[in-house]
């Protein structure tokens, strides 16, 4: 359920297909995930999971996979 939500945030925000959600999806690996897109991503994830990410985690959020690990720290099981 949470994973589905996590995936749909990426797909909607960055106009991605499900097949693109894998370990090759990195910050700046696609045009839309730039620094502006990154902040949009963080604020979307914060609101759908009702969490508040530490800035250290925001700057460590370097990939689709890394994001999952970070959200787990906040008790979001993915």
């Amino acid at each position: 359920m949470n994973l589905h939500t996590y995936d749909s945030v990426f797909m909607e925000l960055f106009s991605l297909e499900p097949s693109q959600l894998d370990s090759t999806l990195l910050y700046q690996s696609i045009d839309t995930w730039d620094s502006l897109g990154h902040m949009e991503l963080i604020s979307k994830l914060e609101s759908v999971f009702n969490v508040n990410l530490e800035m250290d985690d925001v700057i460590d959020f370097s990939s689709y996979e890394e994001g999952k690990r970070i959200l787990m720290k906040y008790g979001v099981a993915l």
Binding site: Y27, Q28, D34, S35, H38, M39, V58, I59, D60, S62
Partner: peptide
């Protein structure tokens, strides 16, 4: 890198 990436710092 952009300012909001760990690698920049």
């Amino acid at each position: 890198y952009s300012i909001i990436q760990r690698s920049f710092w």
